[in-house]
Simulated scan of single mutants.
Amino acid sequence: MTSDPAPSAESSPKGSRLIGRLLPPAIRLWLHTQLDHLEGLEFALDGSDRQILGGYLPGVSLAAHQAVYQGLHVSQAEVEATDIRVNLPQVLRGKPLRLLQPFPVEGQVTVLAADLRASLGSPLLGQGLRDVLRQLLAGAVSEQQVPLVDWLGEGDRAADVAIALGRDRLTLRWPGATPSDDALELSLGLAMREGRWLTLEQPVARVVPAIGAPPPPIALEDTAFDLGPEVDIRRLAVTPEGIDLGGRVRVIPAD
């Protein structure tokens, strides 16, 4: 994402020193409360003193790296948000920063292969992958052909999944309980449809025996997941280095 830098609140003309002192720390504090970990945060505010002091932020540019949200790791994020309304009059009296209305955020996010591997232990991603595999295999194979409980049972072993990235495809591998047990592999492509439908393209499952020849691979049907009307992802690229996402989301304030 490229753009002309927005004027920083801390470098605004005389008369906005109060904003420069109070608003950036409040934003930083709010971001840190939303994330598990955050490094390299940079941001700039756009708008007149009157607008900002009234709680209206016409534009905010933000960049960060090494962010972690609910165990999900992101190496780089660059976003621009517009038309934000916050409770700034209350913030100036020492209250926490709150969002008052939905607003759009546009930008790009880079998730490196190392980020994905670090995220595999998170309950959010780990359970999500198990749910995806169950849905893909449902109706395609019997429990006798692919006993999913051998790989997707509960506990620490269920989260011990490996991931490898290729050009436009990724491969997930669930090991057996011991080195002498079979492993399960799932290879698939990722694509976005109409901005909100995450599509798993040409998925193929394989049982990988520890000894002997593997059985034939199991071709599965394409499956799409609706990310919701607030999401408009215009770019999704999978490479051996990582996954790049670009687009827009609409942020909905928490109740």
Rank of each mutant, 00 (worst) to 15 (best):
residue 18 L to I: 14
residue 39 E to T: 12
residue 71 G to F: 00
residue 255 D to I: 08
residue 55 G to W: 06
residue 92 L to P: 02
residue 39 E to L: 04
residue 38 L to E: 04
residue 193 R to Q: 13
residue 156 D to R: 12
residue 142 S to A: 10
residue 123 P to Q: 11
residue 176 G to Q: 13
residue 41 L to P: 08
residue 51 Q to C: 05
residue 22 L to S: 04
residue 209 P to C: 12
residue 246 G to I: 00
residue 108 Q to A: 15
residue 207 V to H: 09
residue 231 V to F: 10
residue 112 L to G: 10
residue 253 P to S: 11
residue 14 K to E: 10
residue 96 P to N: 04
residue 204 V to H: 06
residue 86 V to S: 07
residue 218 I to H: 09
residue 136 L to W: 10
residue 151 W to A: 11
residue 46 D to K: 14
residue 204 V to R: 09
residue 8 S to I: 03
residue 124 L to N: 02
residue 207 V to P: 10
residue 129 L to F: 10
residue 163 I to L: 15
residue 247 G to V: 03
residue 123 P to K: 05
residue 155 G to M: 09
residue 205 A to L: 14
residue 76 Q to L: 13
residue 161 V to L: 14
residue 25 P to G: 04
residue 175 P to R: 04
residue 122 S to A: 14
residue 218 I to A: 08
residue 39 E to R: 12
residue 1 M to I: 15
residue 17 R to C: 04
residue 212 G to H: 09
residue 72 L to A: 02
residue 199 T to S: 12
residue 13 P to W: 14
residue 220 L to T: 02
residue 183 A to H: 03
residue 115 D to P: 00
residue 21 R to V: 13
residue 52 I to V: 15
residue 65 H to M: 06
residue 14 K to W: 13
residue 243 I to F: 01
residue 39 E to G: 03
residue 3 S to C: 02
residue 65 H to L: 08
residue 127 Q to S: 02
residue 216 P to W: 13
residue 69 Y to M: 07
residue 227 L to I: 00
residue 159 A to R: 14
residue 88 L to E: 02
residue 70 Q to V: 02
residue 20 G to C: 11
residue 187 S to E: 14
residue 75 S to N: 07
residue 161 V to A: 15
residue 119 S to A: 01
residue 171 T to C: 12
residue 55 G to H: 08
residue 86 V to C: 12
residue 85 R to Q: 14
residue 61 S to T: 00
residue 250 R to D: 05
residue 98 R to D: 00
residue 26 A to G: 00
residue 8 S to P: 03
residue 48 S to V: 09
residue 30 W to E: 03
residue 247 G to P: 07
residue 249 V to A: 13
residue 163 I to Y: 07
residue 61 S to W: 02
residue 85 R to N: 09
residue 135 Q to H: 11
residue 42 E to V: 10
residue 208 V to Q: 13
residue 221 E to M: 04
residue 198 L to D: 01
residue 66 Q to Y: 05
residue 29 L to T: 10
residue 120 L to F: 01
residue 31 L to V: 02
residue 176 G to R: 09
residue 191 A to C: 06
residue 209 P to H: 08
residue 233 I to P: 04
residue 178 T to N: 05
residue 71 G to S: 01
residue 150 D to C: 09
residue 127 Q to W: 04
residue 87 N to Y: 10
residue 88 L to F: 15
residue 37 H to K: 07
residue 197 W to V: 07
residue 141 V to D: 13
residue 172 L to R: 03
residue 243 I to E: 00
residue 187 S to H: 03
residue 4 D to N: 09
residue 184 L to D: 08
residue 17 R to M: 09
residue 156 D to N: 05
residue 31 L to G: 01
residue 237 A to D: 10
residue 10 E to Y: 02
residue 164 A to G: 07
residue 11 S to Q: 14
residue 167 R to E: 15
residue 141 V to Q: 11
residue 24 P to A: 03
residue 170 L to T: 08
residue 109 V to S: 08
residue 169 R to A: 01
residue 73 H to S: 05
residue 119 S to G: 00
residue 147 P to L: 15
residue 152 L to A: 15
residue 79 V to T: 08
residue 67 A to F: 06
residue 159 A to F: 15
residue 199 T to F: 02
